[in-house]
Amino acid sequence: MSEHVETPPTRRDFLFGAVYAAGAGGVLASLLPLADTLAPAADTLALASIEVDLAPILEGQAITVMWQGKAVFVRHRTPAEIAAAREADVAKLRDPQTDADRVLRPEWLVAVGVCTHLGCVPLGQRSGQPRGDHGGWFCPCHGAHYDTSGRVRKGPAPANLAVPPYVFLDDTRIRIG
């Protein structure tokens, strides 16, 4: 390669720069649609909401339903569980949230059953499964403990179990999504 000599910029330099910049921009812009295809598609985004019939769930029981490919916990809480959730000192929680902010009706807790640490599904839905130190859920992957409001109390998880958008259609039916 020849030695580069410093010369004042010319119109020719400008044209070269413009061509290169436009060319690079064009290459980048044509890569964008390729990357764009990997984002969730329109049918995925428009995925139907689901309706859940609460009538068969007895007090103290919980069911797992699938919504947008994720497990959602629906728990019919006992008065003792509700009281435990209400009594917790919110200020001391890692992710401070009152129980009232997390439920529409106190006896029904609806939460996305995905541990906020690294995405495992916590145990505690079925009787006999460990429910952790606070009577909620226990994630066996890395040992996160959730209380009866789905709030993280112990372990590596950074946040409470997410509450999905849902509404009560009537006393025994909810629609999630």
């Binding site: 910029p9 400008f14 044209l15 070269f16 720069g17």
Partner: peptide, 16 residues
């Protein structure tokens, strides 16, 4: 190729 002292040409040269 008359020398031009505008910002554009200098930027152009930088890119080139």
């Amino acid at each position: 190729t008359a020398p031009l002292s505008s910002r554009a040409t200098r930027l152009g040269k930088l890119i080139a």
